[in-house]
Computed example of a mutant assay.
Amino acid sequence: MIARRRADEIAAALSADGLILRGGFNFATSETPPHGPSVAPAKSVLLVGQAGAAPWPHFLRWRDRQPQTIANPLDTWSREVIGAVAEKFGARAVSPSDRPYLPFQQWAMRAEGLRPSPLGILMHPQYGLWHAYRGALLFEDEIAAPEAHASIHLCDACVAKPCLKSCPVDAYSADGFAHQACLAHVRGSKGEPCRGGGCLDRNACPYGTAHRYPPEVQAFHMTAFAGL
């Protein structure tokens, strides 16, 4: 079993690059989990991610040593960092971009008791929308930590819903995310505020603002989203 001490050691190893453990759980016997570090099914998973922009300086130092043509640099960095921790602690590292896709959103809600915001990003009671999941560690033994219970969902108490009123092209609505409309705007002549400072709807959320990503971090993600 992954005892508290071992989990603390894993967290300490991740913290060297600004990453944190984001909860975890044991798979039920009725589930069909992905395999662990061997061909045996995993028995538990620990989610790995970030709160705020803590990994950014670590990523930039790594990025400066890489070829400028490297594809998907943040994903590559995350895989490298989490993969090294997985090897050290006898786990299998997986990523949200792995194919076939693993149910990271469902894992995250189960691990931390979170629910989606109107933008689809999980709303965290402390970090608001300013957090992310970068990968997960799959183990072939169980973890000692109990499964999370649902926490307060801040969106339920938010009457004004400014996150649905700030986008110039109304990309988010009850009908879902208008991907093409958003993409065309960000790439267009009027999209500089979004390209340079991030999603206006996301920035309008009143929660977790102390953890908001700096403009350069948001610009990096928006540039990647738009393929610029």
Rank of each mutant, 00 (worst) to 15 (best):
M1K: 02
M1P: 08
A3M: 00
D8P: 00
I10T: 12
I10C: 07
A11M: 02
A13W: 01
A13V: 05
A13N: 03
S15C: 04
A16K: 14
L19E: 10
G24Q: 03
F25G: 03
F27C: 04
F27L: 10
A28T: 03
S30A: 14
T32N: 13
P34T: 07
P34A: 11
A40I: 02
S44F: 11
L46W: 04
V48Q: 05
G49F: 07
A53Y: 03
P55N: 11
P57N: 08
D64Q: 15
P67Q: 06
T69M: 10
I70V: 15
I70T: 08
A71I: 07
N72R: 07
L74Y: 11
T76E: 06
W77G: 02
A86S: 06
V94W: 08
S95G: 05
S95R: 10
P96L: 00
P100A: 10
L102M: 14
F104M: 07
Q106E: 07
M109P: 00
M109D: 08
E112P: 00
L114C: 10
R115H: 07
P118A: 09
L119H: 09
I121R: 03
Y127K: 08
L129I: 13
H131L: 06
Y133C: 08
R134D: 14
A136V: 12
L137F: 02
F139P: 05
F139N: 01
F139G: 00
E140R: 09
E140Q: 11
D141W: 00
D141H: 01
D141L: 01
E142I: 01
I143K: 02
A145K: 00
H153V: 14
C155D: 03
A157Q: 09
A157H: 12
A157S: 13
C158A: 05
A160H: 05
A160D: 12
K161Q: 15
K161A: 14
K161Y: 13
P162L: 01
P162G: 10
C163P: 09
C163N: 08
K165E: 10
K165L: 14
S166A: 15
S166R: 06
C167M: 06
P168I: 06
D170F: 11
A171S: 07
A171R: 01
S173I: 08
A174W: 12
C182A: 00
C182L: 07
C182N: 02
H185V: 05
S189R: 14
K190C: 03
K190R: 13
R195T: 04
G198R: 09
C199Y: 10
C199A: 15
R202S: 06
R202Q: 09
R202N: 02
N203S: 12
C205R: 03
Y207F: 15
Y207I: 13
G208W: 03
A210D: 15
Y213S: 12
P215M: 03
Q218G: 01
H221R: 04
H221V: 08
M222H: 08
M222W: 04
